[in-house]
Computed example of a mutant assay.
Amino acid sequence: MLPILAIAAWSGTGKTTLLKQLIPLLKEKGVRPGLIKHTHHDMDIDIPGKDSYELRKAGADQVLVASQQRWALMTETPHNRTIDFNFLISRMDKRSLDLILVEGFKDEPIPRIVLCRDRSEEEIKELLDEHVIAVASDCSLDVSVPLLDLNDPTAIAGFIVQWLKECP
């Protein structure tokens, strides 16, 4: 099974900023990461006026747009009350990846690194459970898992590579 690792934190902590730094560092170390990002916002990756957008708005429940450089599948899910995380994972091409990074989904029972910036220890404890493999913070915390420097993405990437080597 392909390893899955979430980066979880409260909104505004810097999950995307850290991932933008981690992904190229992991690639430099030979790790091919995929990414699933959770958002609470209504989002649309298509552009009004483009054929794919117009065809989807005409009623197609799925639209796959493909070019030589990339492809994207858009699926309408107006009747889904919740996101099926396992279904999303199953859409990832496991043959071309070494790791699936996940931004958010802090309630899923998957390994995660929790980020903490300017939070009290009581607030960070709300995110700590048996699935947390490390905490990355810019302050001193008393935690029972490795404490990583949130401002040192190279060290965090090294921790992830070591974790991958130890994954069953």
Rank of each mutant, 00 (worst) to 15 (best):
I133T: 05
A157L: 02
E122I: 09
V143D: 11
W71F: 13
P111L: 00
K106P: 01
P33T: 01
G14T: 09
D61Q: 03
M43V: 05
N80R: 11
K50C: 11
I4S: 14
E28C: 02
G104R: 05
K94R: 12
Q162R: 14
D46E: 06
K57P: 12
Q62F: 07
S120A: 12
A157S: 08
I4G: 05
R95I: 06
V102R: 00
F85M: 08
L99C: 07
I7Q: 00
E122L: 08
R112Y: 08
T13W: 03
D138G: 09
D42R: 10
D149F: 15
P153Q: 08
S90P: 05
L164D: 03
D93M: 10
K37E: 12
Q62D: 07
E121D: 10
E130A: 04
A72F: 09
V31R: 06
L141T: 04
H38E: 14
E28K: 14
K57D: 15
H79P: 15
D152V: 00
K125Y: 03
L88A: 15
G12D: 11
R117E: 14
V31L: 03
I124T: 01
P24G: 05
S67P: 12
I124P: 14
I113E: 07
V161L: 03
Q162H: 06
H131P: 13
A157D: 01
I7M: 01
R32A: 14
I7N: 00
I7V: 07
A157H: 02
F87A: 04
I110K: 01
S90R: 02
E123V: 09
A60W: 08
S96W: 08
W163S: 01
S52N: 00
R119C: 12
D51C: 04
L2M: 06
I47S: 13
P78Q: 13
A9E: 13
E28S: 07
E123G: 07
G12T: 13
K165T: 10
I7S: 00
P109W: 11
I23D: 02
M92R: 10
G158Q: 13
D98N: 11
R56H: 14
V102Q: 00
V114T: 15
T75S: 14
K37V: 04
D98R: 14
W10M: 11
L115H: 06
D93Y: 10
I23A: 06
D51P: 02
S96T: 03
A155F: 02
L141A: 10
V135R: 11
A72N: 10
L128Q: 15
I83F: 00
V65G: 01
D118I: 15
D98M: 14
C139R: 15
L101S: 01
S137Q: 08
T17K: 05
A8Y: 04
L88K: 03
E126L: 03
I23E: 10
A66H: 07
G59F: 02
